[in-house]
Amino acid sequence: MDLTLKIWRQKDKNSAGQLVTYPLNGISPDMSFLEMLDVLNEELLVKGEEPVAFDHDCREGICGMCSLFINGRAHGPERGTTTCQLHMRHFKHGDTITIEPWRAAAFPVHKDLIVDRSAFDRIQQAGGYVSVNTGGVPDANEIPIPKTIADKAFDAATCIGCGACVAACKNASAMLFVSAKVSQLAMLPQGKVEAKTRVENMVAQMDVEGFGACSNTGACAAECPVGISLDNIAMMNREYLGAKASSENV
C-alpha cells in the first residue's frame, strides 16, 4: 500500500522542529510500524538524506523503548499495543499518518521522535525499590503471599515504562507510571516495610520533574500498552494520604 507520512523532524533539543511530509510506497500490511519506518529510512539514506531518528529496541513489546504519537494516539490506533507491535494491516492504502514524539515538559525532545525519559528513572531512584542488600535474605517460601495479592501486584509490575500514559494524558501526568510501582510494592509484604517513605518520595520527585496532576480522565489507562489499571492511581492516592498523615517524616 502507499502512504503519506507526516513526521516531526527536529535537529536537537535546542532547535525548533516541524512536520515534514514523506510519500512512502509499496508497504506490506504484514510489516510492523517500525519496519515501515525502517523502509523509509533506507530510502532516505539512499537519497543521501538524514534518516528519521526514533527509539526502539526489543521490537517485541516489552522493553518500553519505542514510543511515537501516531495519528493522534499514543502507540497508534490499536489498544493494548506498543508501536513495535502495531502492524500496517491496521492502516489503509492512501492513508496519511502523522507521527510525533511524546509531548511533555518532562520529556524534552532529543532529536526527531526521540525524547528524554530520564525523569522516569529519577522517580524510580527516589524510592521504587525494596531496601535489601544482596544476600542475607530469608528463604523465598518464608514469605507466603496470597495468590490474589501476588497477581494484583504482578498486574502493576508489568509497566514497561514507555511513557504512553504521560503522552496521552492531557496534563502530561505521570501518575499511572508512578502508581504502578508504588502499588506493586505496597501490596507485597516485602515492600510494606518502607511503603510510606516510598510513596512520599516518589510523588515528591514526580512533582519536581514537572509532570501534570491527575484529572482522572482515564486516558493513561486506555492508552497503556500493557493495561495498567487506574486502581493503582487510587491506591497511590490512598497510600500517599495515609503516609502523609502518619509517617515519621515531618
Binding site: G135, A140, N141, K147, A153, F154, A157, Q184, L188, Q190
Partner: peptide, 22 residues
Amino acid sequence: VNIIDQCVAQGVPFAREYGGLL
C-alpha cells in the same frame, strides 16, 4: 537457590500457588 530468595526479597512477583507459596 540464593537468586530466588534475593528476587523475592526485592518484590519480584513470581507466580504463586493458592497457598501463597511459589
